[in-house]
Deep mutational scan, measured.
Amino acid sequence: AFSSEQLARLKREFNENRYLTERRRQQLSSELGLNEAQIKIWFQNKRA
């Protein structure tokens, strides 16, 4: 489960760009304390 802070950040990123570069995913992973797979799957689900 994502914290409300993490979700807000993911939604902001998604609004700016529906697709993440690998580098951006790595940055978000480290900033949010999530693993890259969690972020990747969140974006895939959000696009679906």
Rank of each mutant, 00 (worst) to 15 (best):
R9F: 06
R12S: 11
R18H: 11
E36Q: 06
F43D: 00
W42S: 00
A37V: 12
L28F: 03
G33K: 07
E36P: 11
F14H: 03
K11L: 15
L10W: 01
S3N: 11
F14E: 02
T21C: 07
K40S: 15
L34R: 01
E31Q: 06
N15H: 12
E36N: 04
L10P: 01
N35I: 06
S29P: 01
E36F: 05
Q38K: 06
K40Y: 13
N45S: 09
Q6G: 02
S29G: 06
A8Q: 10
N15R: 12
A8T: 09
K40I: 14
Q26L: 12
Q38E: 14
L32W: 02
L32D: 01
L7T: 07
R25G: 12
K46Q: 15
R24P: 01
K40P: 00
A8G: 06
R24S: 05
N15F: 09
K11V: 15
Q26S: 08
N15L: 12
E13N: 01
N45V: 09
A37Q: 14
I39E: 00
E5Q: 08
W42C: 01
N17T: 06
R18I: 09
L34T: 03
K46P: 04
I39M: 03
L34N: 01
K11N: 15
N35D: 14
L7E: 13
K46F: 12
L10N: 01
Q44P: 02
L7M: 06
N17E: 04
L20G: 01
N45I: 10
F43W: 15
Q44D: 15
Q44I: 09
W42F: 06
S4C: 11
L32I: 08
N17H: 10
A1P: 12
L28N: 00
A37P: 04
T21G: 07
G33H: 07
W42L: 02
L32K: 00
L32G: 00
E22H: 13
Y19D: 07
S29D: 01
Q26D: 05
G33R: 05
A1H: 13
L7N: 05
E5L: 09
L10A: 01
R18K: 11
S30D: 10
S29Q: 05
E5S: 09
R47L: 15
N15T: 10
L32A: 03
S29I: 05
L34H: 01
L7W: 03
R24Q: 09
N15Y: 11
R9K: 08
N17L: 04
A48E: 13
Q6K: 04
N45E: 15
L28E: 00
F2M: 10
Q6Y: 02
E13H: 04
W42A: 02
N35R: 09
Q44F: 09
E13L: 03
R47G: 07
Q6H: 05
R12Q: 14
Q27T: 09
W42N: 00
A8Y: 06
R25H: 05
Q26Y: 09
I39H: 00
E36D: 06
F14K: 02
N45H: 11
A1W: 13
I41S: 11
I39Q: 02
T21M: 03
K40R: 12
N35C: 06
Q6L: 05
Q38N: 05
F43G: 00
R12E: 14
S30V: 14
E36A: 08
E22D: 13
Q44Y: 10
L32T: 09
N15W: 08
R12L: 10
E31F: 03
R47S: 08
L7K: 05
E13G: 00
Q26N: 07
N15S: 12
Q38I: 13
K40N: 14
L20A: 04
A8D: 14
E13K: 02
Q44M: 11
F2Y: 08
E31K: 03
Q27Y: 08
T21A: 04
K11S: 13
T21I: 02
K46C: 08
R12C: 10
G33F: 04
E16A: 10
Q44G: 05
E22M: 08
K11P: 01
L32H: 01
F43A: 02
N17W: 05
T21H: 05
I41D: 14
F43N: 00
N15D: 13
R18A: 13
K46M: 15
F43K: 00
F43H: 00
E16R: 10
N17A: 05
S29V: 08
I41Y: 09
I39P: 00
A37C: 12
E16C: 10
K40G: 10
Q26V: 10
N45Y: 08
N35P: 15
L28G: 00
E36R: 04
F14N: 01
R23G: 11
K40L: 14
L20H: 03
R23N: 14
A8S: 09
N45C: 11
A48F: 08
R47W: 13
R9C: 07
S4E: 14
R47K: 06
Q26K: 14
R23H: 14
L10V: 01
K46E: 15
Q27S: 08
Q6E: 04
E36G: 06
R25A: 15
R25W: 10
L28R: 00
L10Q: 01
F43R: 00
I41P: 00
L32M: 07
R47F: 10
Q38V: 14
Q44S: 09
R18S: 11
G33M: 06
Q27K: 09
K46S: 13
A1Q: 13
E22K: 15
S4A: 13
R23V: 14
Q27F: 08
R47N: 14
R12H: 11
I41A: 12
Q38L: 15
E36W: 04
E5F: 09
S29N: 01
R25K: 10
F14G: 01
F2R: 00
E5H: 09
S4P: 14
R25V: 15
I41E: 15
L28A: 00
R47E: 10
S30A: 15
L28V: 02
R24N: 04
N17R: 06
Q38T: 11
A48T: 08
F43L: 03
E22W: 09
Q27E: 14
R24H: 06
R18Y: 06
Q27I: 10
G33N: 09
S29K: 04
G33A: 05
S3F: 03
W42D: 01
K11W: 15
A48H: 11
F2G: 01
Y19T: 07
E13A: 10
E22N: 12
G33E: 05
R18L: 04
L7F: 04
E5V: 08
T21Q: 04
R9V: 13
E22G: 09
Y19I: 11
N35S: 15
I41C: 09
R12M: 11
N35E: 14
F14P: 00
R23C: 09
E16M: 10
Q6S: 04
Q27R: 10
L7G: 03
L32N: 01
L32R: 00
E31M: 05
F43Q: 00
L20W: 04
E36C: 05
F14C: 04
R47D: 07
E31A: 05
W42M: 01
K40F: 15
L28M: 04
R25P: 04
Q44V: 07
A48K: 13
A1M: 14
L34W: 02
E5N: 06
S4W: 09
L28T: 01
E22L: 10
S3M: 04
L34G: 01
L34D: 00
L32Y: 02
L7A: 05
N17D: 08
S4N: 12
E16K: 14
N35K: 08
L10R: 01
Q6M: 06
G33Q: 07
E5A: 13
A37S: 13
N45Q: 13
R18N: 10
A1E: 11
A48V: 10
Q38H: 07
R47T: 09
R24C: 05
A8K: 10
N17I: 03
Q26A: 12
S29W: 03
I41H: 09
Q6W: 03
L28K: 01
Q27P: 01
N15M: 12
S3D: 06
K11R: 14
N17P: 01
E36M: 05
Y19M: 06
K11I: 15
K46H: 12
E5M: 07
L28Q: 00
L34S: 02
N45K: 11
R12W: 11
T21N: 09
F2T: 02
E5D: 08
R47M: 13
E31V: 04
Q26T: 08
A37F: 12
L10G: 02
Q38S: 09
A48S: 09
F14L: 03
S3T: 15
S3W: 03
E22Q: 12
E22T: 12
Q6V: 12
K11Q: 15
A37W: 15
E16P: 01
N35W: 05
K46A: 15
F2K: 02
E5Y: 10
Q26E: 08
K46Y: 14
Q38D: 14
W42T: 00
S3Q: 04
N35H: 11
Q27W: 09
N17F: 06
F2Q: 02
Q27N: 07
I41G: 08
L7R: 08
S30H: 13
R23D: 14
Q6I: 11
A8R: 10
R23A: 14
R9E: 07
A1N: 11
E22V: 13
R9D: 03
Q27V: 09
L32V: 04
A8F: 05
Q27C: 06
E16N: 09
N15A: 14
L20Q: 03
R18F: 06
R25C: 15
L10S: 00
L32E: 01
S3L: 04
K11G: 10
T21Y: 03
F14T: 01
R25M: 15
Q38C: 10
L28I: 06
A37T: 14
R9Q: 06
R12P: 00
Y19L: 07
I41N: 10
L32S: 02
N17Y: 06
R9G: 07
L34A: 04
L7C: 08
E16T: 11
N45A: 08
L7Y: 05
E22R: 13
S4K: 14
A1V: 12
E13W: 03
R9Y: 06
F14W: 11
A48Q: 12
N17G: 05
L20C: 06
L32F: 03
F14Q: 02
L32P: 00
R9W: 05
Q26W: 06
S4R: 12
I39F: 02
N17S: 09
Q26F: 07
R24L: 07
N15G: 07
Y19V: 10
E5I: 08
A1K: 11
